[in-house]
Design a protein around this nucleic acid. Structure first.
Lengths: 217, 217
DNA sequence: CGCTCCATTGAATCCGATCAAAGAGTGTGG
DNA sequence: CCACACTCTTTGATCGGATTCAATGGAGCG
């Protein structure tokens, strides 16, 4: 059975081929390592970190169940980011060689793969716009709405969920300091827009929150 | 002959199939229009603009000869950005349907296509890092080094080239105000790092300039 | 020539970064 | 079970770079 056929996600009922477990804090693949294939995330959460030449680091994404990761390695056969698990995580490897071979038999998974990559590109555009136009409050709000939507898609409540990442990681991702993230959380709570207790977030007024910030990218 | 076979760019000697001319200021495709396929840019320069719901706009990229554009339309069959020519431009359309069909005969152009998309994704990561960590001077410097490199690849001088975009467009792209772009240009000129006359840029001390800013993403 | 758009420069303001310190949470080993 | 060490989070005070508002100067074009 071809690995790529598993790309018609989500299908967690079917026992996936070659399931792989990554414990919290462990690295799935590291920047600079040779690229062998993609991974479909089955459960858990990871962070994708891009290390700059001068040692500084940038969180690029927080992939979770349903996402396919590793595209940045396609360019020159080397992983462009380091992928670390934020909690215990299960991934299904998709060998890259089989992707090219697959092209000969069926074009639909190919189309799917392209759509996934295109989605990553589009996400980059909206994020570019977000960083360009939005202030700290809008950035954090968009992040929370995104988290809410994604946890909702996992079957959790969209109004009450647990963040898997630290303030510093959120800050790196949103391009603002850890302190500003914390202050913005506090400010939103003071205004009654949400309740926050450490990493637990409760969007008590989901409708109002969405109305206030939903118009952004 | 299959359109996708032209993807082994650059090959401007061979007369391309279905060459299309876009005059300066004209729109190649607009955000929201149905997606029919990609385009390979043969000559000229364009800007890719992402319009937000509230009317604000964000310049996402400045594609030029050698680039393949339109990937964002693959997601849901609708173009995600508006592509406008900054000068008279030639593009070669690549019908999308033939891409899927092509998969059945040869996997190499497919691999090439994936690499192009992966490159776009990676570009997004480095840009994310750039916006997060770099100040106005570093942003503009990186932009100029990128322009220099690309014009050099076109056969022009890497030290003396003509920008095709306005200060406002550069500012939108780099997420800073038009005034800051202008001020930063002036500051660099005052320090003797370059000469700038309207849209013409002369990097007199290319080596020093690269050494100073080349370590960035 | 006159119009419009683009670029430059100045002055005032503000948002977020940085530095600093204290409090809350977590896990380990005695 | 508690003490200790460590990391994460919160909050305050200050500073600085970029934005904003505003006015002038140039470039290109009909």
């Amino acid at each position: 059975m071809n690995a790529l056929l598993q790309l018609d996600l989500p299908s967690r009922e079917r026992q996936p081929w070659g399931l792989h477990k990554v414990r919290a804090g462990r690295v799935l693949f590291a920047q600079g390592e040779p690229f062998h294939g993609l991974y479909a995330v089955r459960s858990g959460t990871l962070k994708s970190v891009f290390a700059l030449a001068d040692g500084r680091e940038q969180v690029c994404a927080f992939p979770m169940a349903g996402d396919v990761i590793g595209f940045d390695g396609v360019v020159d056969g080397v992983h462009g980011t380091t992928m670390t698990a934020l909690e215990d995580t299960h991934v299904a490897p998709l060998a890259w060689r089989s992707c090219a071979q697959l092209a000969a038999c069926d074009a639909n998974p190919l189309q799917h793969l392209m759509e996934l990559m295109a989605r990553d590109i589009q996400r980059g555009h909206t994020f570019h716009a977000l960083l360009g136009r939005a202030n700290a409050q809008e950035r954090l709000a968009m992040f929370l709405l995104d988290q809410s939507r994604r946890w909702h898609a996992q079957g959790c409540s969209p109004c009450d969920f647990q963040l898997r990442m630290s303030r510093a990681e959120i800050g790196s991702f949103l391009c603002m300091s850890m302190e500003t993230v914390s202050r913005t959380f506090s400010g939103m709570q003071r205004k009654g827009w949400l309740r926050v207790d450490n990493r637990r977030v409760i969007l008590s007024d989901m409708v109002g929150f969405t109305r206030r910030f939903g118009a952004l990218p």
